[in-house]
């Protein structure tokens, strides 16, 4: 199965599904339709890129329930909620639960497609972030514990001297460690290293001020 970004449409009304597929395919996007939340859960596997177009009112598992399920299972696919007329309270709940957008029926095609594109972008970004994080994590794994310590301190803005003092080594040694960290982490600059540290959610173990 290709990992082309796909629009997953979940709606219990067949006409609705068919028409959405027809509309979205007109802008050359890949569409897959599901008649219920369960059908979607059963066929979707994490890692597939795309976005989810979800009718909020459905028999069986409702749209909101599906959202909840995705959250619990840490599936970060962007969700666009489709609501009927006057379902504003429902839409609000959906947005609070992390939907990227909500669209009222009947749709303005431009608005819908725009929303889908936006969601796709969000998805792409999320995926990018995720792949970066994974890269950083592999690089971090190459560091020795001492180098890890040094990197933490460096990215927290400690000067070499300070580092040398707190580690009880010479500045030269710190220099050497630092150069190796930069090399192992494939960082061109300190700024890049800091970004990586943020990306990897590295937190500095605070040492007591002297």
């Amino acid at each position: 199965m290709s990992n082309r970004p796909t629009v997953f449409v979940v709606d219990d009304d067949q006409a609705m599904r068919n028409s959405l597929k027809w509309l979205i395919e007109s802008v050359s996007m890949q569409v897959e339709t599901f008649e219920s939340a369960n059908a979607f859960i059963q066929s979707y596997y994490p890692g597939r890129s795309g976005c989810l177009l979800l009718d909020v009112r459905m028999p069986g598992m409702s749209g909101l329930e599906l959202q909840e399920y995705l959250q619990v299972n840490q599936i970060a696919i962007p969700v666009i909620i489709i609501t009927g007329h006057g379902d504003v309270p429902m839409a609000v709940r959906a947005m609070k639960a992390g939907a990227v957008d909500f669209i009222e029926k009947p749709f303005n095609d431009e608005l819908l497609l725009e929303s889908i594109r936006h969601a796709m972008a969000v998805d792409a970004k999320q995926r990018d972030m995720q792949s970066q994080r994974a890269e950083i994590a592999t690089r971090l794994a190459r560091l020795t514990p001492r180098e890890h310590e040094v990197m933490l301190m460096v990215t927290n803005g400690k000067a070499n001297k300070e580092i040398a003092t707190s580690l009880g080594v010479s500045s030269k040694t710190v220099e050497a460690h630092r150069a190796r960290v930069m090399e192992k982490m494939e960082a061109d600059s300190l700024a890049e290293l800091v970004r990586m540290a943020i990306n990897a959610n590295l937190t500095l173990v605070e040492t007591p001020e002297e």
């Binding site: 027809w22 395919e25 009947p106």
Partner: peptide, 15 residues
């Protein structure tokens, strides 16, 4: 709303 939305979608797709 259901049929109306479907109609709009089909029509937009056609256009």
């Amino acid at each position: 709303n259901q049929p109306l939305s479907a109609i709009v979608n089909f029509a937009s797709g056609c256009v």
